[in-house]
Computed example of a mutant assay.
Amino acid sequence: MEYKKITETPSNHEHLEQMDTQTILTKMNEEDKTVAEAVEKTIPQITKLVDALAERFQKGGRLFYIGAGTSGRLGVLDASEIPPTFGIPHERVIGLIAGGDTAIRKAVENAEDDKVQAWLDLKAHDINENDVVVGIAASGSTPYVIGGLNDAKRNGILTAAITNNPGAPIAQIADIPIEINVGPEFLTGSTRMKSGTSQKLALNMISTALMIKIGRVKGNKMVNMQLSNDKLVDRGTRYIVEGLGIDYSEAEKLLKKHGSVKLALEAGRE
């Protein structure tokens, strides 16, 4: 099936080098304003993914992101933020990037062209049928991601894809395709811009909604966050003040005694 490579189409803006700074920024901002609307159109597919993830997480399943370049880095970023925000182990949401951890900071030549490596990376984590693999690629044609999704499907693992080219190969492979059409980039082909922003929004939605569904949020509070610095201890203490109607010092003692907002709230209500 032929598909239009929207991410490679020419920018709607000409002669960028002739624009003054404010015009450059204004035009970029105008393009960025369209991204959330593009993501909104994919909510039905994101809903399917979150519900499938929640069901598998209850059975001990995990979420894997696979990607290359900007897309891979965004997956690693989202995965890395889940343990401190929601207090679950690092091995429950895992971001894998073509070229390994070195590629997070520095591009690894030809890593994204390897169709075999993603499955090897997944197998190193003993991936199984309770897990879900989400391939992320703006182009939708990254060999590393295509190979990983194909191998995951062959092994009975649920797959999803986030791409900015509707009808792209990874969208055709995945059980749950999330196709976010943000149109041409302000800087032609620079998918770190609108495409990357749309992927970040979708990943925020997927992981946050999943954590809410599996009980890691109470009301609208991060009651399972790791208390890894003074700011977070203060935030947790204020949550307890609000939740129990006690003074700050008493709330802080409860928090330090029990180690989490959730446990402190439970103890304070006994």
Results as ranks from 00 to 15, higher is better:
64 F>D: 10
46 I>V: 09
73 R>H: 03
85 T>H: 07
95 G>E: 03
62 R>M: 02
100 G>R: 03
39 V>M: 01
93 V>S: 05
104 I>N: 04
39 V>R: 06
26 T>Y: 12
78 D>K: 10
86 F>M: 11
103 A>T: 01
30 E>L: 10
73 R>Y: 04
25 L>D: 03
32 D>Q: 03
38 A>N: 08
43 I>K: 13
90 H>M: 15
17 E>M: 08
112 E>A: 02
49 L>I: 05
104 I>G: 05
44 P>N: 08
97 I>S: 01
15 H>C: 12
49 L>E: 05
35 V>R: 09
89 P>I: 09
63 L>S: 04
107 A>R: 06
55 E>H: 11
72 G>D: 00
88 I>M: 11
50 V>N: 01
82 I>V: 14
49 L>F: 06
66 I>N: 06
49 L>N: 08
53 L>F: 01
64 F>Q: 08
91 E>K: 13
80 S>Y: 03
51 D>Q: 15
59 K>A: 11
37 E>S: 15
48 K>W: 10
33 K>H: 14
22 Q>P: 01
58 Q>Y: 09
39 V>L: 10
26 T>H: 15
90 H>Y: 14
106 K>A: 13
66 I>F: 05
108 V>F: 05
24 I>H: 01
61 G>Y: 09
80 S>R: 03
19 M>Q: 13
17 E>P: 07
73 R>M: 02
83 P>L: 07
103 A>F: 00
70 T>E: 00
52 A>V: 11
14 E>I: 12
89 P>R: 13
99 G>C: 01
67 G>A: 02
96 L>N: 01
66 I>E: 03
64 F>P: 10
69 G>A: 03
55 E>G: 08
71 S>W: 03
40 E>H: 15
30 E>Q: 11
54 A>Q: 04
78 D>M: 05
35 V>T: 12
13 H>A: 10
80 S>D: 00
94 I>G: 05
88 I>A: 08
20 D>L: 04
61 G>D: 08
51 D>S: 15
21 T>I: 13
57 F>R: 04
102 T>H: 15
35 V>C: 06
46 I>L: 06
37 E>D: 15
70 T>K: 00
82 I>A: 12
15 H>V: 14
16 L>T: 06
105 R>N: 15
68 A>W: 05
